[in-house]
């Protein structure tokens, strides 16, 4: 009996030892809005993220003011009129990654299920993307639509340039193993 317990204990210790946290500080999030008047694309390279391979827990944090637009005035309007980023300075995701195998080396599909908070409104998302484990790096990529209405983001009626009701978000993260 004692031996069995010991064995389980040892196994569990092994599992915990193998469970690793991965981190990124330069994650990229791009949003693209296609509208008849103008296509608008903005890029953010200051996204931070944490990923735990044991539990599959995945979290990321997007500082809204770090989105870069081709026109500086557009960037100002994005922050002031749409995202109200002085009130809601960041967008966050808190969830779990499922449907992948940790031993597979090639590119594989995975699903991220969890809570995405934008503009202070939390919505449950189920995002499919791809995952690539390479040495001590894990690369994740996903493209998914975000409806402005879902997050209570209003388009001011007097604004001349249109923003699509639904924007396309591309996330591109390269996680690195946290060395202890």
């Amino acid at each position: 009996m004692k031996n069995i317990i010991l064995t389980i204990f040892c196994l569990l210790t092994l599992v915990t030892a193998r469970a690793q946290n991965y981190k990124t500080e330069t994650g990229e999030v791009v949003f693209f809005s296609s509208a008849p008047v103008e296509d608008i694309k903005a890029k953010n390279n200051a996204v931070t993220g944490l990923f735990n391979t044991e539990t599959g827990s995945l979290a990321f944090l997007v500082p809204i003011k770090a989105f870069r637009f081709p026109k500086s005035l557009m960037q100002q309007h994005f922050n002031e009129k749409f995202m109200e980023s002085d009130t809601y300075p960041e967008a966050t995701f808190d969830g779990k990654l499922t449907g992948y195998s940790q031993s597979e080396t090639g590119s594989q599909d995975a699903r991220a299920k969890g809570k995405l908070t934008i503009h202070g409104v939390t919505v449950n998302y189920d995002i499919s993307g791809t995952l690539l484990i390479e040495g001590d790096q894990i690369k994740m990529e996903a493209v998914f639509p975000v409806k402005l209405e879902d997050h209570d983001i209003q388009i001011p009626s007097v604004l001349f340039y249109n923003i699509a009701e639904e924007v396309e978000v591309t996330a591109n993260f390269v996680f690195e193993e946290i060395k202890k």
Partner: peptide, 26 residues
């Protein structure tokens, strides 16, 4: 590990650095 998993987002928030430029009124 269960405890650690709960706090990934909180951990991120506590570690996050803010660019001084983001504090400026737009």
């Amino acid at each position: 590990p269960a405890g650690a998993q709960e706090n990934l987002l909180d951990q991120l928030k506590s570690e996050s650095k803010t660019d001084p430029d983001w504090k400026r009124p737009t």
